Amino acid sequence: MNKLRAQEIAASPDMANVTYNGVPVYIQKVDENNETARIFPLDQPEKEQEVSLSLLLEQ
């Protein structure tokens, strides 16, 4: 996923269809320097993790 698009999604109040390994996720914040995002599965908000933006897909 493009860094700018990930930032737009994270800042937007609207829900975007983003997946990580086929699982729908919520993007909490984007780390511009490392090109990573703090995410969690929609059905498991306690399972936060940091992943590379290249592994996120917008459906």
Rank of each mutant, 00 (worst) to 15 (best):
E35K: 15
R38F: 06
Y20C: 02
I27L: 04
P41G: 02
N17E: 14
A11S: 12
V25H: 06
M1T: 10
D43Y: 03
G22L: 04
V18K: 02
K47A: 13
R38H: 05
E48L: 09
D14I: 06
F40A: 12
N34Y: 08
E48Y: 09
I9Q: 06
L57F: 11
V30F: 03
A6Q: 06
L55R: 12
M1V: 11
L57K: 14
I9N: 11
V51H: 13
Y20F: 15
S12A: 15
Q49C: 09
A37S: 07
L56C: 05
Q59M: 00
M1C: 01
Q59G: 06
I39V: 15
E8R: 13
D14L: 14
P24S: 02
N33T: 12
S52T: 12
V25K: 03
L57N: 13
G22E: 02
S52V: 03
Q49Y: 02
V23Y: 01
K29M: 10
I39T: 08
E58H: 02
L57A: 07
V30W: 05
A16F: 12
E46G: 07
A6H: 01
P41R: 08
E58R: 11
A6C: 10
I9S: 04
S54M: 11
T19F: 09
L55N: 11
Q7N: 11
N2V: 02
Q28F: 01
V23N: 03
V25R: 06
A11W: 03
I9L: 06
E48K: 12
V30G: 02
D31Y: 12
P41Q: 08
D14E: 15
N2H: 04
T36G: 10
A6T: 11
M1K: 14
F40Y: 15
P24Q: 04
T19M: 08
L57C: 08
P41I: 05
P13R: 15
E8T: 14
